[in-house]
Amino acid sequence: MMADRRWRWFHRLGSPPHVYSLAGRLAPWLGWIALILLLAGVVWGLVFAPPDYEQGDGFRIIYVHVPSAWLSLFVYTAMAVACAVGLIWRMKVAFAAAIAMAPLGAMFTFLSLATGSIWGQPMWGTWWAWDPRLTSQLILLFLYLGFIALNRAFPEQQTGDRASALLGVVGVVNVPIIHFSVDWWHSLHQPATIAQFGPPAIDTAMLIPLLITAVGFKLYFLWLLCLQLRSELLYRERRASWVKAEAGKIST
């Protein structure tokens, strides 16, 4: 009885209408707080934080680059957890969450690549250097794209979900190995002439706005996830009665 009650939240997360309405209730909070934090962090970071003594104002791109790079790995891990939950407990909502996260993760990965490349132009004098972190991010982007492509390739949604979920779980085992191997490759290939991203000892005046934007980005991701998950659930459950009831509410 106790055990039942303790796990009830988990079982309720398996119910699409419950998650649909939960995401609907959370979304506005997440969206507004994310907006406030992002505005505060960006204004603080771009205007009030002191310029870097080496890079001048060029470093300010970290307020977008670093949070999106952190998120890209965080989202992949979260996606793989959702995949594993879906595979083990055959939970439909988990699959929907995983596939809702994938394009968002790919987007943040792309954002970190693009900002890294823009940052590289003044720093290294080239748009693309084979910096280990950028290289790892590029491979991560391909992992995301492979996941999405595999999921969409199947005519049967359920089969595609399970196939891509297995790929996600295998991928998350592989991500640390890829990161390590690329670092190792770089250390052998080129002596450390290129400065790595992420200042080793960052000044507090720079760090605080960075942390604020990092939290803001995370909430922004969660807000997008809520929206994405809601539409994914509506599409997947289109045959279910609760979706027809939702549709009825809108049309009347």
Partner: peptide, 25 residues
């Protein structure tokens, strides 16, 4: 993973190649 799909060749490459990076390196 891709055997039941009709045109699996390119998808197979997209799915597998990123995972093989450590071995290659």
């Amino acid at each position: 993973l891709t055997v039941s799909l009709r045109s699996s060749g390119t998808l197979l490459a997209l799915v597998v190649l990123p995972l093989t990076v450590p071995v290659l390196i």
